[in-house]
Design a protein around this nucleic acid. Sequence first.
DNA 1: CTCCTTTGCAACCGCTCAGTTGCACTAGAA
DNA 2: TTCTAGTGCAACTGAGCGGTTGCAAAGGAG
Lengths: 98, 98
Amino acid sequence: MDVFAALGDPTRREVLRRVAGGPTTATELALQMPISRQAVSKHLSALDEAGLVERTVSGREVRYSLRAEPLSDVVGWVNEVGNAWDQRLAKLKSRLDR
Amino acid sequence: MDVFAALGDPTRREVLRRVAGGPTTATELALQMPISRQAVSKHLSALDEAGLVERTVSGREVRYSLRAEPLSDVVGWVNEVGNAWDQRLAKLKSRLDR
DNA sequence: CTCCTTTGCAACCGCTCAGTTGCACTAGAA
DNA sequence: TTCTAGTGCAACTGAGCGGTTGCAAAGGAG
Protein backbone atom coordinates (compact mmCIF):
# COMPACT_ATOMS: atom_id res chain seq x y z
CA MET A 1 0.00 0.00 0.00
CA ASP A 2 1.41 3.39 -0.97
CA VAL A 3 1.64 6.36 1.38
CA PHE A 4 -1.41 8.20 0.04
CA ALA A 5 -3.62 5.14 0.33
CA ALA A 6 -2.28 4.53 3.83
CA LEU A 7 -3.33 8.02 4.87
CA GLY A 8 -6.69 7.61 3.16
CA ASP A 9 -8.38 5.91 6.09
CA PRO A 10 -9.35 8.14 9.07
CA THR A 11 -8.78 5.43 11.66
CA ARG A 12 -5.33 4.78 10.25
CA ARG A 13 -4.51 8.48 10.42
CA GLU A 14 -5.57 8.44 14.07
CA VAL A 15 -3.31 5.47 14.70
CA LEU A 16 -0.39 7.23 13.06
CA ARG A 17 -1.09 10.37 15.05
CA ARG A 18 -0.92 8.43 18.30
CA VAL A 19 2.26 6.70 17.22
CA ALA A 20 3.71 10.15 16.55
CA GLY A 21 3.07 10.92 20.21
CA GLY A 22 5.55 8.25 21.15
CA PRO A 23 6.30 4.58 20.37
CA THR A 24 3.49 2.19 21.32
CA THR A 25 2.19 -1.30 20.77
CA ALA A 26 -0.94 -2.53 19.07
CA THR A 27 -2.41 -3.63 22.38
CA GLU A 28 -1.89 -0.23 24.00
CA LEU A 29 -3.48 1.54 21.06
CA ALA A 30 -6.45 -0.83 21.03
CA LEU A 31 -7.18 0.07 24.67
CA GLN A 32 -7.43 3.75 23.75
CA MET A 33 -9.52 3.22 20.63
CA PRO A 34 -12.96 1.72 19.92
CA ILE A 35 -11.62 -1.09 17.73
CA SER A 36 -10.08 -4.47 18.38
CA ARG A 37 -6.37 -5.14 18.70
CA GLN A 38 -6.45 -7.03 15.40
CA ALA A 39 -7.86 -4.02 13.62
CA VAL A 40 -5.10 -1.82 15.03
CA SER A 41 -2.55 -4.45 14.08
CA LYS A 42 -3.79 -4.46 10.51
CA HIS A 43 -3.52 -0.68 10.34
CA LEU A 44 0.01 -0.82 11.70
CA SER A 45 0.88 -3.42 9.07
CA ALA A 46 -0.43 -1.11 6.37
CA LEU A 47 1.53 1.82 7.81
CA ASP A 48 4.61 -0.40 7.97
CA GLU A 49 4.17 -1.41 4.37
CA ALA A 50 4.00 2.26 3.44
CA GLY A 51 7.20 2.87 5.38
CA LEU A 52 5.46 5.25 7.78
CA VAL A 53 6.21 3.20 10.86
CA GLU A 54 9.09 1.16 12.24
CA ARG A 55 8.76 -2.18 14.05
CA THR A 56 10.97 -2.82 17.06
CA VAL A 57 10.64 -6.24 18.62
CA SER A 58 11.39 -6.18 22.32
CA GLY A 59 10.86 -9.53 23.95
CA ARG A 60 7.31 -10.63 23.28
CA GLU A 61 6.03 -7.17 22.47
CA VAL A 62 6.31 -5.21 19.23
CA ARG A 63 6.75 -1.48 19.56
CA TYR A 64 5.96 0.85 16.68
CA SER A 65 7.54 4.25 16.11
CA LEU A 66 7.06 6.90 13.44
CA ARG A 67 9.09 7.13 10.27
CA ALA A 68 8.46 10.63 8.97
CA GLU A 69 10.43 10.42 5.73
CA PRO A 70 7.61 9.19 3.46
CA LEU A 71 5.51 12.12 4.62
CA SER A 72 7.79 14.41 2.66
CA ASP A 73 6.75 12.56 -0.49
CA VAL A 74 3.19 13.61 0.22
CA VAL A 75 4.17 17.23 0.69
CA GLY A 76 6.29 16.97 -2.44
CA TRP A 77 3.43 15.72 -4.57
CA VAL A 78 1.06 18.36 -3.23
CA ASN A 79 3.56 21.11 -3.94
CA GLU A 80 4.12 19.76 -7.43
CA VAL A 81 0.43 19.91 -8.27
CA GLY A 82 -0.02 23.24 -6.53
CA ASN A 83 2.91 24.79 -8.32
CA ALA A 84 1.73 23.60 -11.72
CA TRP A 85 -1.55 25.31 -11.03
CA ASP A 86 0.07 28.51 -9.77
CA GLN A 87 2.33 28.71 -12.79
CA ARG A 88 -0.66 28.30 -15.03
CA LEU A 89 -2.38 31.16 -13.24
CA ALA A 90 0.75 33.31 -13.56
CA LYS A 91 0.95 32.60 -17.30
CA LEU A 92 -2.69 33.44 -17.72
CA LYS A 93 -2.22 36.67 -15.82
CA SER A 94 0.82 37.80 -17.85
CA ARG A 95 -1.11 37.02 -21.02
CA LEU A 96 -3.94 39.19 -19.82
CA ASP A 97 -1.52 41.98 -18.99
CA ARG A 98 -0.19 42.04 -22.53
CA MET B 1 -15.34 11.97 0.73
CA ASP B 2 -12.59 13.81 2.59
CA VAL B 3 -9.43 15.17 0.99
CA PHE B 4 -7.15 12.36 2.14
CA ALA B 5 -9.46 9.67 0.86
CA ALA B 6 -9.82 11.55 -2.42
CA LEU B 7 -6.05 11.51 -2.87
CA GLY B 8 -5.88 7.86 -1.88
CA ASP B 9 -6.60 6.51 -5.33
CA PRO B 10 -3.76 6.69 -7.91
CA THR B 11 -6.09 7.21 -10.87
CA ARG B 12 -7.78 10.06 -9.05
CA ARG B 13 -4.43 11.67 -8.32
CA GLU B 14 -3.62 11.42 -12.02
CA VAL B 15 -6.92 13.09 -12.86
CA LEU B 16 -6.21 15.88 -10.41
CA ARG B 17 -2.72 16.30 -11.81
CA ARG B 18 -4.09 16.73 -15.30
CA VAL B 19 -6.69 19.19 -14.09
CA ALA B 20 -3.85 21.15 -12.49
CA GLY B 21 -2.37 21.49 -15.97
CA GLY B 22 -5.40 23.49 -17.02
CA PRO B 23 -9.21 23.30 -16.86
CA THR B 24 -10.66 20.34 -18.75
CA THR B 25 -13.78 18.24 -19.14
CA ALA B 26 -14.47 14.63 -18.29
CA THR B 27 -14.64 13.73 -21.97
CA GLU B 28 -11.25 15.27 -22.75
CA LEU B 29 -9.62 13.48 -19.83
CA ALA B 30 -11.17 10.15 -20.80
CA LEU B 31 -9.56 10.42 -24.24
CA GLN B 32 -6.12 10.73 -22.65
CA MET B 33 -6.62 7.96 -20.11
CA PRO B 34 -7.33 4.23 -20.31
CA ILE B 35 -10.67 4.46 -18.54
CA SER B 36 -14.19 5.37 -19.59
CA ARG B 37 -15.69 8.82 -19.39
CA GLN B 38 -17.99 7.65 -16.63
CA ALA B 39 -15.05 6.56 -14.52
CA VAL B 40 -13.40 9.95 -14.98
CA SER B 41 -16.68 11.62 -14.15
CA LYS B 42 -16.97 9.66 -10.92
CA HIS B 43 -13.44 10.67 -9.94
CA LEU B 44 -14.22 14.30 -10.70
CA SER B 45 -17.35 14.04 -8.54
CA ALA B 46 -15.24 12.69 -5.68
CA LEU B 47 -12.70 15.48 -6.13
CA ASP B 48 -15.53 17.99 -6.24
CA GLU B 49 -16.99 16.59 -3.04
CA ALA B 50 -13.57 16.99 -1.43
CA GLY B 51 -13.45 20.58 -2.63
CA LEU B 52 -10.38 19.92 -4.74
CA VAL B 53 -12.03 20.88 -7.99
CA GLU B 54 -14.45 23.51 -9.25
CA ARG B 55 -17.28 22.91 -11.69
CA THR B 56 -17.94 25.53 -14.35
CA VAL B 57 -20.91 24.85 -16.61
CA SER B 58 -20.45 26.38 -20.04
CA GLY B 59 -23.32 25.53 -22.36
CA ARG B 60 -23.55 21.76 -22.53
CA GLU B 61 -20.05 21.10 -21.29
CA VAL B 62 -18.77 21.05 -17.73
CA ARG B 63 -15.24 22.32 -17.22
CA TYR B 64 -13.28 21.40 -14.11
CA SER B 65 -10.51 23.51 -12.61
CA LEU B 66 -8.28 23.02 -9.59
CA ARG B 67 -9.08 24.33 -6.13
CA ALA B 68 -5.79 24.20 -4.27
CA GLU B 69 -7.02 25.34 -0.85
CA PRO B 70 -7.86 21.90 0.58
CA LEU B 71 -4.35 20.76 -0.29
CA SER B 72 -3.05 23.03 2.44
CA ASP B 73 -5.08 21.00 4.93
CA VAL B 74 -3.10 17.95 3.87
CA VAL B 75 0.20 19.74 4.33
CA GLY B 76 -1.08 21.06 7.65
CA TRP B 77 -1.92 17.63 8.97
CA VAL B 78 1.38 16.18 7.82
CA ASN B 79 3.29 19.00 9.51
CA GLU B 80 1.27 18.52 12.67
CA VAL B 81 2.19 14.85 12.92
CA GLY B 82 5.77 15.47 11.85
CA ASN B 83 6.22 18.24 14.39
CA ALA B 84 4.82 16.16 17.22
CA TRP B 85 7.37 13.52 16.39
CA ASP B 86 10.23 15.99 16.08
CA GLN B 87 9.37 17.59 19.40
CA ARG B 88 9.34 14.18 21.00
CA LEU B 89 12.76 13.50 19.56
CA ALA B 90 14.02 16.88 20.81
CA LYS B 91 12.70 16.18 24.31
CA LEU B 92 14.32 12.79 24.29
CA LYS B 93 17.57 14.31 23.17
CA SER B 94 17.59 17.03 25.84
CA ARG B 95 16.85 14.39 28.46
CA LEU B 96 19.78 12.36 27.24
CA ASP B 97 21.97 15.46 27.36
CA ARG B 98 21.16 16.05 31.02
C1' DC C 1 -36.84 20.82 -36.75
C1' DT C 2 -33.23 17.16 -36.93
C1' DC C 3 -29.00 15.21 -35.82
C1' DC C 4 -25.01 14.83 -33.05
C1' DT C 5 -22.38 15.60 -28.97
C1' DT C 6 -21.80 16.04 -24.04
C1' DT C 7 -23.46 14.98 -19.84
C1' DG C 8 -25.97 12.71 -15.92
C1' DC C 9 -28.36 8.83 -13.77
C1' DA C 10 -28.82 4.04 -12.55
C1' DA C 11 -27.81 -0.65 -12.35
C1' DC C 12 -24.50 -4.04 -12.12
C1' DC C 13 -19.96 -6.69 -11.30
C1' DG C 14 -15.72 -7.77 -9.03
C1' DC C 15 -12.65 -6.78 -5.74
C1' DT C 16 -10.62 -4.76 -1.96
C1' DC C 17 -10.77 -3.27 2.67
C1' DA C 18 -12.01 -2.42 7.58
C1' DG C 19 -13.35 -4.94 11.28
C1' DT C 20 -14.41 -9.14 14.13
C1' DT C 21 -13.69 -13.72 16.01
C1' DG C 22 -11.17 -17.86 17.03
C1' DC C 23 -7.01 -20.28 17.52
C1' DA C 24 -2.12 -21.23 17.87
C1' DC C 25 2.43 -19.61 19.28
C1' DT C 26 5.87 -17.49 22.13
C1' DA C 27 8.16 -15.08 25.84
C1' DG C 28 8.16 -13.67 30.59
C1' DA C 29 6.46 -14.46 35.58
C1' DA C 30 5.44 -17.43 39.46
C1' DT D 1 7.10 -26.39 34.53
C1' DT D 2 2.78 -23.91 34.59
C1' DC D 3 0.18 -19.93 33.89
C1' DT D 4 -0.48 -15.54 31.71
C1' DA D 5 -0.02 -11.69 28.58
C1' DG D 6 1.19 -10.02 23.78
C1' DT D 7 1.27 -11.27 18.83
C1' DG D 8 0.40 -13.38 14.58
C1' DC D 9 -2.34 -16.02 11.25
C1' DA D 10 -6.56 -17.29 8.98
C1' DA D 11 -11.30 -17.20 7.85
C1' DC D 12 -15.40 -14.71 7.57
C1' DT D 13 -18.70 -10.78 6.91
C1' DG D 14 -20.47 -6.38 5.31
C1' DA D 15 -19.84 -2.45 2.99
C1' DG D 16 -17.79 0.69 -0.12
C1' DC D 17 -15.34 1.62 -4.34
C1' DG D 18 -13.47 1.60 -9.07
C1' DG D 19 -15.02 0.56 -13.40
C1' DT D 20 -18.26 -0.61 -17.22
C1' DT D 21 -22.52 -0.47 -19.87
C1' DG D 22 -26.98 1.25 -21.23
C1' DC D 23 -30.18 4.82 -21.59
C1' DA D 24 -32.35 9.28 -21.19
C1' DA D 25 -31.92 14.34 -21.22
C1' DA D 26 -30.30 18.72 -22.93
C1' DG D 27 -27.61 22.07 -25.62
C1' DG D 28 -25.39 23.29 -30.47
C1' DA D 29 -24.79 22.87 -35.35
C1' DG D 30 -26.76 22.00 -39.86
